[in-house]
């Protein structure tokens, strides 16, 4: 077991009141497993992973619950200890490669900086390692690429550089936050391929955050669907996509236009928009948009329950 998150709660004090960005999230991650986390804006998918990385620096945030990395509790760990893990054992890839790299340093410098932050090796050795890494993420000319500045590379190449940086210390856990959302599909396909390949070669476990069901279904071993700060459904890729149980998962899958076959005249759309975390509805947060909601959904809040394939829905529990 690489990562074990139990009942994680993250809330922010704001001028408009307390915002519960994450409300009781639990999940496990095995070695070299890819967990897909799906959700819309405000679902808490990014915040939960920032919490795992210890990257929530907002002084108004409070984090409760337990995050265990290889059995070691991360919540409440001193910053210095956390820093030793970050970039070394736990690495992160961000959404927008355009802004994720410091504009004034070369790619090589930035990757070497990370290696030297965690390993006591010479600059020349670090640079040699950078070249290897860039070759591994398919840079056509790794030696030349090292001396390039971020703005001199295309979006796809920048994201490869970010991935090379994340891999530089052979992390056991890789957290990827929508790493392909800002890229073209053709480039995305290459990046997804790369993530798959690296999981095999580096044996890293991957948490892959995305809003794209297609991406998850191509990449993930297991999937977790989030809505308004809670996990509404989890299961293996096969379980979730061949037998989606939560009405939100079903609706989300149904609203994706098909790429083949007959075009529906109208798409089955979910009414309304995701709720504001400041004004969450009573009971089940998806209730007001749910096609099958009934009385229990207004008063009670369904739990996810146990089992590998589970959905937080009274209708599912009832069936």
């Amino acid at each position: 077991m690489i990562l074990s998150v139990r009942d994680l709660k993250v809330s922010f004090r704001t001028n408009d009141g307390l915002v519960r960005a994450i409300d009781g999230v639990s999940f496990d991650l095995e070695e070299s497993e890819i967990l897909g986390v799906v959700g819309e804006s405000g679902s808490g998918k990014t915040v939960s992973l920032l919490a795992v990385m210890g990257l929530i620096t907002d002084p108004n945030a409070s984090i409760e619950g337990s995050i265990r990395y290889k059995g070691r509790e991360l919540v409440g760990l001193p910053p210095r200890e956390l820093r030793r893990l970050r970039g070394n054992e736990i690495a992160m890839i961000f959404q927008d490669p355009m802004t994720a790299l410091t504009p004034v340093y070369t790619i090589g410098w930035q990757i070497a900086e990370q290696i030297r932050a965690h390993q006591n090796i010479s600059k020349a050795k670090a640079m040699a390692r950078v070249e290897e890494l860039l070759a591994e993420v398919n840079f056509p000319n790794p030696h030349e690429a090292m001396s390039r500045y971020p703005h001199q590379l295309s979006g796809g190449m920048r994201q490869r550089a970010v991935i090379a940086m994340a891999l530089s210390c052979n992390p056991a856990l890789l957290v990827a936050d929508e790493p392909t959302t800002a890229l073209d599909v053709t480039v995305q396909a290459g990046i997804l391929d790369l993530v798959r390949k690296l999981r095999a070669t580096h044996k890293s476990a991957v948490v892959f955050i995305t809003h794209d069901m297609g991406v998850v279904s191509e990449l993930a071993d297991r999937v977790m669907v989030m809505y308004a700060g809670r996990v509404v459904e989890r299961g293996s890729r096969m379980e979730l996509f061949s037998d989606p149980r939560h009405p939100y998962t079903r609706a989300l899958l149904g609203s994706i236009p098909p790429l083949t076959g007959e075009k529906p005249r109208r798409l089955p759309a979910i009414p309304g928009s995701p709720p504001s975390l400041l004004r969450l509805p009573q009971g089940c947060a998806f209730g007001p948009r749910c096609p099958v909601h009934y009385e229990p959904c207004v008063t009670g809040r369904p739990d996810l329950g146990i089992g590998t394939h589970a959905a937080a829905c009274f209708r599912v529990a009832q069936a």
């Binding site: 053709t186 396909a189 290459g190 794209d212 096969m238 790429l259």
Partner: peptide, 22 residues
Amino acid sequence: ALISAVPVVETTPSGTRKRIIL
């Protein structure tokens, strides 16, 4: 290549769809 690169929800084991990576 463009169309094959679009990730789609598949319920079959992965790798059945042919993908052309540019």
